[in-house]
């Protein structure tokens, strides 16, 4: 009888603890790196688990400064900025989501900085709360669920709730649409590069708005379907190792050869290893099709960027008339 009593109260005790965990768990989501791409997934998953979400603000000067301060110097700007996002919310949450994204498609990988992202952040930023650590293999839902199982446990012990949250997250993610498609504009460019450089308006100094102000439409890789991408990359001597290399190579190749745009703008973070290879491949592939490579780093002076964009647009206008 004693044992039964213990089991019962023990059970209750754990349930209360669980309840406490769920109601008061504050989960921080940094708005850096691939946040824009997978925002519905992470938001839905943690919301469905009953956590309160603390999302960092859009990248701003303070976040950039914090990122540069904490992050190791050799990292690229987007990784530094990610550190800044973490630092901006770390004191407000119990758990910070640091997606260790390993894989998005089968037999392809993404930048090695992502593999060690949690360790990099934890060792650089002092007084960090708990973080997610489980790697993300998103090539299939089964593999992705492995992440959800382990990570969900950091928020709740309720397995069926994790399962349901995961399903809802996957569903919401599937409806997520990104990208620009101004193919019907007279003058338009293919905007290529890693998504975090394209979609972070602070990092790229409002590039898209600047282009639109000059009357130039923007087309991004989201409008090229997988079949075309496979066909374009099959011309390479080897299957691309990185997912973003595949996307950007295939997109620029298709955009140039089919003439769906007047020129290509490739936006790249200074010292990006993947881009150093991809840009060369792209240049080699498209021949004399207009290409402008924009390198972004910490500088906030916009004159250099403006000069390049304006000159490129002048050139496209004159070429097309």
């Amino acid at each position: 009888m004693f044992l039964a009593y213990f089991l019962q109260t023990g059970q209750e005790y754990f349930n209360v603890a669980n309840l406490y965990k769920e109601v008061f768990m504050k989960v921080g989501i940094p708005k850096g790196l691939l946040y824009e791409n997978y925002q519905p997934f992470f938001h839905t998953f943690f919301e469905e688990l009953g956590a309160e979400l603390i999302v960092s603000p859009d990248t701003n000067k303070d976040i950039l400064d914090k990122g540069v301060k904490y992050c190791v110097d050799e990292a690229c700007l987007p990784v530094k900025v990610f550190h800044g996002h973490v630092a901006s919310i770390k004191d407000k949450c119990d758990l910070i989501v640091i997606p260790r994204i390993m894989q998005l498609r089968k037999r392809e990988f993404i930048c090695p900085k992502f593999c060690g992202l949690p360790e990099m952040v934890i060792s650089s930023i002092p007084e960090m709360p708990d973080t997610t650590l489980e790697p993300i293999y998103a090539a299939s839902n089964e593999k992705l669920f492995q992440w959800a199982k382990v990570t969900g446990k950091q928020v709740t012990n309720n397995r069926s709730r994790i399962q349901k949250a995961f399903e809802a997250a996957v569903e919401n993610q599937a409806n997520h649409k990104m990208g620009f498609d101004d193919r019907d504009t007279k003058l338009k460019v293919a905007l290529s590069g890693h998504p975090y450089n394209i979609y972070d308006n602070y990092l790229n100094m409002n590039l898209i708005r600047k282009l639109k102000k000059l009357g130039v439409g923007v087309v991004t890789e989201e409008f090229i379907d997988d079949e075309i991408k496979d066909r374009e990359t099959s011309k390479l001597y080897k299957k691309p190792f990185w997912s973003f290399a595949r996307n950007n190579y295939a997109f620029t190749s298709h955009a140039a050869s089919k003439g769906i745009v007047n020129g290509i703008i490739y936006i790249s973070s200074f010292a990006c290893g993947i881009d150093s290879v991809v840009i060369d491949l792209v240049q080699h592939n498209i021949g004399d099709f207009p290409l402008l490579v924009l390198k972004i780093d910490e500088h906030t002076g916009e004159a250099g960027l403006d000069t390049r964009i304006e000159a490129f647009v002048d050139m496209l206008e004159r070429r097309s008339s």
Binding site: D288, G304, A311, R318
Partner: peptide, 11 residues
């Protein structure tokens, strides 16, 4: 008589 390509030094 038109600019067909240009490049500037990077960083």
């Amino acid at each position: 008589g038109i600019v067909t390509d240009f490049a500037m030094n990077t960083v």
